[in-house]
Amino acid sequence: MKKDKEQIDNSPMPRREFFRKISKAIAGAGVLALGGAAATKVKGNKSASLYWQIDPEKCTQCGRCETSCVMPVSAVRCIHANKVCGYCDLCGGYYRTNAKELNTAAENMICPTGAIQRKFVEDPYFEYTIDEDLCNGCGKCVKGCSSFGNGSLFLQIRQDLCLNCNECSIANVCASGAITRVPYETAYKMKDQA
């Protein structure tokens, strides 16, 4: 026992101190390694942030966007690509499929909130616009338009409304896996700009 004690006294530093120094060095190396490894995954271009967006080509309008967003009214809204639209009178996104009469009575409208407005342009064309304050992203008109029309109505996440959660609660339940993270350049996936 006595010999042991002498050895400790003769050592350049106490054992506890030695362990402390070693663990400090390991932790420091760990910080460097972790930081360095993660830094290689950073891409230093303008797309610093990523945004959630719906791919309109994949979307099947299951209607979950309306109810699954963390916002009281979903950040998903319908967007109308006028350049794709056929300006039809008999619009699949405007009238219900079983509409008895083609007039603007509420029972004939597909939009539950009356957010689609139409304006007569010239015979036989009508211009359709979306009142974004009324739209709740249910996608009923989108379904109608892509079934019977050109698919000019489509759902998009409005980036000025989206909270950009780290984990999008709509993306989790999206039936078609259409919601993904996109870089700044394609923050909206427009139909008329392609």
Binding site: S49, I79, H80, N82, K83, V121, T129, D160, Y184, Y188
Partner: peptide, 15 residues
Amino acid sequence: GYQYPEYTYAVPNEM
């Protein structure tokens, strides 16, 4: 002579 309406959708300045 109908003109297509122009819409722009804002992306907040996340940067």
